[in-house]
Design a binder for these strands. Structure first.
Lengths: 203, 203
DNA sequence: GCGGTTATTCATCAACTGATGAAATAGTGC
DNA sequence: GCACTATTTCATCAGTTGATGAATAACCGC
């Protein structure tokens, strides 16, 4: 009764398994956990368990926890999406920026941003270069579509407004902003963002 | 040559020391480390070393790391200061709120807020009640001085703007906002905050 | 159907972490 | 100057964490 292979007997055993995307499963589990617990709060064992895989497999594919984190961010994909959105000429700049953050960055790529923020804020010493990434990727988004005096500062005020919303709405979960629709938020945001974005055109 | 006391010989030894405020030193070290590394990123050993004290002394005074964290926040002192500031009738509400955050919360109590934010974002499971504290203390500050429709939401948009500034300016350290003066920030902030604060009085 | 490559698990390590109990020392009341 | 108490260090523990090396199993070219 022991002549069949371990896999055929349904046991959990060593060796190659059939047709599973373990590497992808690990990346997905890592993304979710880094997003909800940050870098330090996420253990490789938790990632492995969520992915239904042994811990050692993580190191087999990614080497270190840090490289797993870096790969789970997919910043390249995000950067591409952003420049794409910014290239298209929009009617109202303030509304365009607000929707860019709310409807793209904070939904489709929410895990990436949450993980990045939680990690940068939670363990600054481990990842010194993440500050630079954050400055360029997140803040740079608004900066590029802006002119006039103090352009960088005004862009950062816009980014600060949106990052604060990300924190309160998605990371901390404070009511009522956590359950307010994007439409309602845009309505309130546009006049405020406009004071930053149009400041340079007065004089 | 061994007849004097260990302390008299300048050695590091057990037993009570003269006239030092070890408890206060521990609290100060904890506040600084929690602010710069968050709850999880701060080890009791690091606190002890910074305070020039053995690890066991921390547990002698505070029991657990969590209670040390809670005590290091001094939220009571902050809450008192806030209601005090809010009670005084100010001319321009928007400017008053901006200055309240920039000149009081983000300077005098920066370590407390940084530690709170870093901890809430970095290790959400460890401190479930901190979300509530944050909602009440930080966001509530602006909320109380507000009326009209969507008062809570508008207050949170103000808080979001200021929290985003705290993150970019003090926690991540992005330029140029990190080295911009409070005066310059207030100049840009007032018109934007006004759109939130005065929204309720139109209709 | 054989040999090499890749995927997967198991067993284990060394470092670190929060925490505890006991011992030693100095100040305090009397 | 003696008992008492508060402060301080030392030695140590048990649990967790990231990481490694060897063993095993399935797939691929041929």
């Amino acid at each position: 009764m022991n002549n069949r292979t371990p896999a055929a007997r349904g046991e959990r055993s060593r060796g190659r398994r059939l047709a599973g995307d373990s590497r992808g499963d690990i990346l997905g589990a890592a993304r979710a956990l880094f997003a909800s617990r940050g870098y330090r709060g996420t253990t490789t064992r938790a990632v492995a368990e969520r992915a239904g895989v042994d811990v050692a497999l993580i190191h087999h594919f990614f080497g270190t926890k840090m490289r797993l984190f870096a790969e789970s961010l997919e910043l390249a994909r995000i950067a591409g999406r952003l420049s794409e959105q910014l290239a298209a000429p929009s009617g109202d700049v303030a509304e365009g920026v607000a929707r860019l953050y709310l409807e793209t960055l904070f939904t489709e790529h929410r895990d990436t941003f949450a993980g990045l923020l939680r990690t940068v804020l939670g363990s600054p010493d481990d990842v010194p270069e993440l500050r630079r990434i954050m400055g360029e990727q997140i803040v740079g988004v608004a900066s590029r579509s802006l002119g006039g005096p103090d352009a960088a500062l005004r862009a950062e005020l816009v980014a600060a407004q949106m990052i604060g919303i990300l924190v309160l709405r998605h990371l901390v979960g404070v009511e009522p902003i956590a359950t307010t629709s994007n439409e309602a938020l845009v309505r309130y945001l546009v006049p405020a963002l406009r004071t930053y974005l149009e400041h340079g055109e007065e004089a």
